[in-house]
Design a protein around this nucleic acid. Structure first.
Lengths: 158, 158
DNA sequence: GGATGTTAGATAGGATGCTATCTAACAATC
DNA sequence: GATTGTTAGATAGCATCCTATCTAACATCC
């Protein structure tokens, strides 16, 4: 009868549950493929943002990865520890550092692209060409809707 | 030209990136609404699995939530600490405990259902009725594909 | 019925994510 | 140019995930 209530109790009918599940599986699949390279899923946005040789601030990288600043700080600390990135002082702002990829990281970029494309293709193998575009578009609309809610609640959780 | 390579470098074209982003936003939206109740996103699969008064083992709850056993153990420890669940010895197996909801947890179930339905509706507000079904179905197929890959790699990562 | 293998949980260790706060440096304004 | 407000990072503290291991209890099989 009340299919709405039923759905809320059924993980297969809950967009939040399914999205979380899919995200964990994506991370696992990427991790399994990149571990031999000494790389992890959270490195990807950083690697892609700096792949063209750019040097960006921590803040810019956090925005590119859509994570909070302390999260990016921790990720960059691990990447620096592992010899993937280097920080150099920003000549224009003494508070800031400019982050860039090391040669070692640059050498792994091809493997990274291959792994990400392989996982993407594998995950979407059950969808047709048109369906993939629809799926990504719908995901985008879900993100926009949730982003607006988050922003609204940060401004004034009335 | 090579739209495939381009997509792999563009977060908006990466199913993995978008799914991860959406999942974090879902968790945030749920968390903001359930924090006043002393509840968190990871509690939801447990609450729903035990909502009907059932008493399940840790293993069964891990399976219901699709997380590993140590993850469920930690979640249950926190829920026990916060007075949401109780563990009683399984009379049929001395290794195992049966987990059930406390009265305090049961009293929060209505608020939980309301919050999860609100977030679900909000996230999918930009999709039509038909699109939502398509979206959930596609998410399900993505999960199945990734699950198979994970299982394959666990058995024999040849 | 005892050896052998399996299974339920516990524990250790680490990555990724969040909020809340603090400092130091920049910017703006009078 | 000193006060005031803003912004970049650092840090603390915690939740949620994972893999890898260990123990104790069950189950099987000769």
């Amino acid at each position: 009868m009340d299919s709405k209530l039923y759905m809320s109790l059924n993980r297969l009918g809950s967009a939040g549950y399914m999205t979380n599940w899919a995200a964990r599986l994506f991370a696992l699949a990427i991790e399994q493929r990149l571990k031999p390279q000494g790389l992890a899923p959270a490195h990807l946005p950083v690697l892609f943002a700096l792949a063209d040789g750019a040097a960006l601030s921590q803040k810019a990288l956090a925005a590119a990865a859509a994570v909070e600043q302390p999260t990016m700080a921790a990720t960059l600390n691990r990447m620096e520890r592992d010899g993937l990135i280097a920080r150099s002082p920003d000549p224009a702002d003494r508070r800031s550092s400019l982050v860039s990829l090391t040669v070692a990281a640059r050498d792994k970029l091809d493997a990274v692209r291959q792994a990400t494309e392989a996982v993407n293709a594998l995950a979407l193998a059950g969808l047709g060409e048109t369906e993939r575009a629809i799926f990504l578009d719908q995901l985008g609309r879900v993100v926009v809707a949730l982003e607006q809610d988050t922003a609204r609640r940060k401004r004034g959780p009335s």
